[in-house]
Amino acid sequence: MERVDAKGDVTAGPSAPPDAPVAEGVRLLDGMPRQRGPVEAVPVRPAAPEGAAPGRRVLRPWRLLPTPTGTPFTLTFAAVLLVTAFVAEHADPALVHALHQGSSTDVAHLLRTPVFVLVASALWVVGGVTSPYAVLFLLVLTALERRIGGLRTAGVFALGHVLATLATEVPVGLAVLVGWLPVSSLHRLDYGISFGVAASAGALAGLLRPWLGWPLLLVFGGTLVRDLIAYTDPMTNWGHVTALAIGVATWPWVRRRRRPARLDL
Score class of each variant (00 low, 15 high):
181 L>K: 06
161 H>G: 07
174 L>K: 03
199 A>H: 05
141 L>R: 01
205 A>S: 15
153 T>P: 11
167 A>R: 03
196 G>N: 02
148 I>F: 02
163 L>D: 07
133 Y>M: 15
156 V>N: 00
170 V>H: 05
186 L>P: 07
183 V>A: 09
203 A>T: 06
186 L>C: 05
119 V>K: 00
108 A>N: 09
190 D>L: 08
131 S>F: 10
203 A>Y: 03
145 E>S: 09
204 L>S: 04
145 E>W: 01
166 L>I: 11
110 L>Y: 04
190 D>E: 15
127 G>W: 02
200 S>D: 10
149 G>N: 07
141 L>K: 04
194 S>Q: 07
181 L>A: 04
200 S>F: 05
120 A>E: 09
174 L>Q: 04
145 E>D: 14
194 S>V: 08
145 E>I: 11
119 V>C: 02
195 F>W: 08
173 G>A: 08
203 A>F: 04
212 L>Q: 14
106 D>P: 07
128 G>C: 03
206 G>M: 11
108 A>S: 14
180 W>V: 10
184 S>L: 06
209 R>K: 15
171 P>G: 06
210 P>V: 14
178 V>M: 04
159 L>W: 02
123 L>G: 01
147 R>C: 10
193 I>H: 00
165 T>L: 05
133 Y>E: 15
193 I>V: 15
142 T>H: 10
168 T>K: 00
166 L>F: 13
200 S>N: 07
142 T>P: 13
152 R>F: 11
197 V>T: 03
115 V>S: 08
165 T>K: 02
160 G>N: 07
189 L>E: 13
207 L>V: 13
195 F>D: 02
105 T>I: 12
189 L>G: 06
114 P>I: 08
134 A>S: 13
104 S>R: 00
120 A>F: 02
201 A>Y: 07
147 R>V: 12
111 L>R: 14
129 V>C: 02
194 S>E: 11
196 G>T: 08
118 L>M: 14
101 Q>P: 06
99 L>E: 11
188 R>P: 00
154 A>Y: 04
112 R>G: 05
201 A>G: 14
101 Q>S: 15
194 S>W: 01
129 V>N: 09
99 L>Q: 10
143 A>P: 12
188 R>Q: 13
132 P>G: 09
149 G>C: 12
106 D>E: 12
172 V>E: 05
184 S>D: 11
172 V>L: 13
179 G>D: 04
108 A>F: 03
179 G>P: 04
184 S>Y: 04
188 R>W: 10
201 A>P: 08
179 G>W: 02
129 V>R: 00
157 F>D: 04
175 A>C: 03
191 Y>N: 07
107 V>E: 00
167 A>V: 10
206 G>T: 11
112 R>M: 13
155 G>S: 11
99 L>G: 09
213 G>Y: 11
201 A>T: 12
110 L>R: 00
125 V>L: 09
210 P>E: 14
129 V>Y: 01
111 L>Q: 14
192 G>C: 12
198 A>G: 12
195 F>T: 05
187 H>Q: 14
158 A>I: 13
198 A>S: 15
134 A>P: 03
198 A>H: 09
202 G>H: 05
107 V>T: 08
136 L>V: 08
186 L>V: 07
191 Y>F: 15
150 G>C: 13
199 A>T: 06
163 L>Y: 06
179 G>S: 04
125 V>E: 03
130 T>D: 14
137 F>A: 05
167 A>T: 05
108 A>H: 09
126 V>C: 07
